[in-house]
Structure formats: structure tokens, C-alpha cells
Amino acid sequence: MKVLGIESSCDETGVALVEAAESGTPRLLAQALHTQIDMHQAYGGVVPELASRDHIRRVVPLARQVLGEAGATLADVDVVAFTRGPGLAGALLVGAGVACSLAAALGRPAYGVHHLEGHLLSPFLSSDPPAFPFVALLVSGGHTQLLRVDGVGRYALLGETIDDAAGEAFDKSAQLLGLGYPGGPALARLATFGDPTVFTLPRPLLHSANLDFSFAGLKTAVRQQALKLGPNVCEQDRAHLAAATERAIVDVLVHKSIAALRRTGLDRLVVAGGVSANLTLRELLGAAAARRGVRVHYPEPALCTDNGAMIALAAAMRLQHEPLGAGDGYAFDVKPRWPLATEPVAA
């Protein structure tokens, strides 16, 4: 079974082709990705209308590229998968519309995938895939969640952010420091030149009884410290504040992840989403996990951000465990807000 996956939830257009047998981990045949970073930089963030229009321009050429690199044709595609949500409504509609139209033209089923499930399962395409069960830390610009994962579609929420996600904290703090878009990677680069102990910043909910997160207070503290430093702050102080901000976010993520492992009694952790590429997070979480004898799994670097491979993979893994619908009528909808606890269904 070959699954063509289309990702268009925000500011990256991704297309990929995955092949799956009746059992075993599906394998990636080819993928292509276009990022809209350059287009949105002038506005300091994602402009939804521009994002949607760019997806329209990119998705078909990317699909042709993927099929060519995989040595496949449209006739070889058995299922067309797409991101159904969560994400920007207009952007989601582009991917859903193209996927369902293509599926209808081919007489093949279309399958709507949960974006976060794609991230959660993406490490199965890595050179060191995990095994069920495990604790998952989903950490990105829009989401920060801890889940117990017992199998495909078997997810129990352990904790989540009550305000800003970790990725938002990175991006908004970067903006306060006068860094460009996207802010998270820029802040992490600047932090490598700073000392995280120079400034003291809060770690919200670090010692709370639950596994929830909160990063809004940290963002406020960064703002107050930036105001104290003033508009003429030297580059070294900016680097120190960037390092302190990064360490505060990472400390919370590490502490909560280890607490989730302790609470569940599991010894395997999956970290996925855009922030999973952060090197400080990987270093400190790896050290903390090693002290407990815990294995940590990450997506390959190219699969940390939004991509079509994770969408095709999630659909393929779902379809290894459930019947394939006929796709009657090829009607579709999108879910800009969609809790991961809700089961994805075929369109």
C-alpha cells in the first residue's frame, strides 16, 4: 500500500510518499517540503491568507516532484492522506481540497489525519524507532502536551499547557529581544553565546502536583527584563537573556517529562514537534533520561518541523489497524481546533 501524504496546516507545504505492508513500520519513499519563512519574515509572523495562497501554488508541483523521485506514478497511489486539523482553516482547506479531488479522480480513498498524531508517530521513520508503550512529549509552536501512548490511536493525555506553548514562548521571547522570524531558532542560536545563570527567570508550574505547563508568566518576565536592559542593550547581555530564557523553558520540559515517566512507570520517551530539534533540550533531557535508564527517541532532523512524511506515515499506521473506507462522495471538512483525544476518521 502506497500512501501519498499532504501537509498544509500552517506555513509549510509538505508532500511525501510512504509504502506500508500489512505489518511492520512503513518506509518513506520520497518527500518534498516548501517553507514560507522568507515570505512571512516581512510581517513578523504567519499571515493566514498569504499562507493559503502559497499552499495552492506549491502542492501540485511538490506532488509531481515526490512521485518522480520515488519512481512512481499516480496510478501507484492507493490512499491520499491530508492534514485535517488542527491548524489554519484556510491552509487546511487547500490540502484537504487537493487531496480529496485527487483521490476522487483516481478512484482511491482519501484519509484525514490529525496533525499532532503525525508528529507523535514521526520517530517511527527514524533510524532508532520507538516501541509501544511510551510517554510522548509533543512540543511545538502551538502545542505542548504529555501523553501516554499504548499504540496507534491509544493516547491518554497526561498534561498540557494552560496558556502559551513552549514554541510560542521561544518565538515571543525572541521578538522581545529584537530577533527575527521565526524566533525560536534565532533565540537558540543567540543563546549559545550566553550564560543562562546571569539572569534569573521563573519556571512556572515546575513543582506543581500535575503535569500541566504554563509559559505566559515566563514571557512576561522576559519582557520585564528586556525593558530593564533598555533599547541599547549590548549584544552580550542579549545573549545572556536568550540563554536564560531557553534554559527556563527546557528545565520545565525536562522536569515534567521525567515526572510523567515516573508517574506512568514507563522507560521510553518520544519527543516530537518543532521544538524537539532544540539542542539544549536534547542534551539536558538526554542526560536526565540516562540517569533513570530511559530511552529517548526523536524524529530525524528533517522531520521535526511540519512535513508530508508524518502525515503519510500516520495514515499508513492507522490503516494497518483499521478498515479502509471507500471514500464515498469525497466530502471533507477540516478541524482548525481538534483535541488529539478525538479519533481521526476517513474523509
Rank of each mutant, 00 (worst) to 15 (best):
Q36C: 07
Q36V: 07
Q36H: 15
I37W: 09
I37T: 15
D38A: 12
M39E: 14
H40K: 04
Q41W: 07
A42I: 11
Y43G: 00
Y43N: 00
G45C: 01
V46C: 10
V47E: 04
V47T: 10
P48L: 14
P48H: 14
E49V: 10
L50A: 09
A51R: 13
D54E: 15
D54N: 13
H55A: 02
I56R: 14
R58A: 11
V59P: 09
V59A: 10
V60A: 13
L62W: 10
L62S: 11
L62A: 14
L62R: 13
R64N: 09
V66R: 05
E69M: 04
A70P: 03
A70W: 01
T73R: 15
T73M: 12
T73F: 13
L74Y: 03
A75M: 00
A75L: 01
D76W: 04
V77L: 10
D78W: 12
V79F: 08
V80Y: 02
A81C: 04
A81T: 07
F82G: 14
F82C: 14
T83E: 07
G85N: 04
G85Y: 01
G87W: 00
L88Q: 03
L88F: 03
G90P: 03
G90H: 00
A91M: 08
L93C: 08
V94P: 10
G97S: 11
V98T: 07
C100A: 00
S101M: 01
S101Y: 03
L102T: 13
A103E: 01
A104K: 02
A104Y: 02
A105I: 10
L106D: 02
R108Y: 04
R108G: 05
P109G: 10
A110G: 06
Y111T: 11
